[in-house]
């Protein structure tokens, strides 16, 4: 039983893409290690719902912008590369924005300007500039996915804590039983507000640094 499961798993673990993903989630996490793209990470994490939609949108935008820029890397002139990159990213973000408005209108209202702000999210431009310009399309695409997952892991972690502690819910469903409230449990209102996000992410990074340092 075990053997059949470990074999493909072992093969997957040896691929470059898998290593990229692990690296982006752990040693080189875009948010907590490279300090990129924090703006949106904080603003959309009041609810798990919005955090997950935002993560998916960002992951797809990074992956496809990497793919596009890496396929064009031999024809983009060096001195106007930033403009080309921004144009590609902005086009993808408009697509994402329009799709959200069409199919998930409520969520897109909650995300408000933050989907548009993916354009200036340093992760996307950073990966395009730092990775896609010097690597073949498939690896760049996987790198985009990997960094998207690294970003999502922090975003979803923070959103989980903020929604649970701030409003006692997950995905909008009440998790903390009514009994607790009757016994005097009170939701932590700070978590819903802006300062809660800063403090949670600070503690999150503290935990991560401590765990990583212990390992090495």
């Amino acid at each position: 039983m075990n053997g059949t499961f470990t074999k493909p798993w072992g093969a997957i673990r040896k691929t470059k893409s898998f290593k990229d993903i692990v690296k982006a989630m752990w040693q080189a996490n875009p948010i907590s290690k490279q300090i990129l793209g924090i703006c949106s990470a904080l603003a959309v994490t009041v609810q798990l719902n919005t955090a997950i939609v935002m993560s998916v949108a960002l992951t797809l935008v990074v992956a496809f912008s990497n793919l596009a820029i890496s396929s064009m890397r031999h024809v983009i002139p060096r001195n106007i590369r930033i403009i080309v990159e921004v144009a590609v990213i902005a086009t993808l973000v408009i697509l994402a924005d329009e799709l959200l408005k069409a199919f998930m209108y409520d969520v897109s209202k909650q995300l408000s300007v933050f989907v548009g702000l993916i354009i200036t999210n340093c992760i996307v431009l950073g990966r395009a500039e730092g990775f896609a310009l010097s690597n073949p399309p498939f690896r760049s695409f996987m790198d985009g996915i990997a960094n998207g997952i690294g970003y999502s892991s922090v975003l979803i972690g923070v959103a989980f804590l903020r929604e649970l502690l701030g409003s006692g819910k997950l995905f909008g469903y009440q998790i903390i039983p009514d009994m607790f409230y009757e016994l005097g449990y009170v939701n932590n209102g700070l978590m819903v507000l802006a300062p809660g996000a800063f403090i949670i992410i600070g503690l999150f990074v503290w935990l991560e640094h401590t765990l990583l340092n212990r390992k090495s």
Partner: peptide, 8 residues
């Protein structure tokens, strides 16, 4: 980490 908490 401390910068984020200070900002908070």
């Amino acid at each position: 980490a401390i910068n984020m908490i200070t900002t908070g």
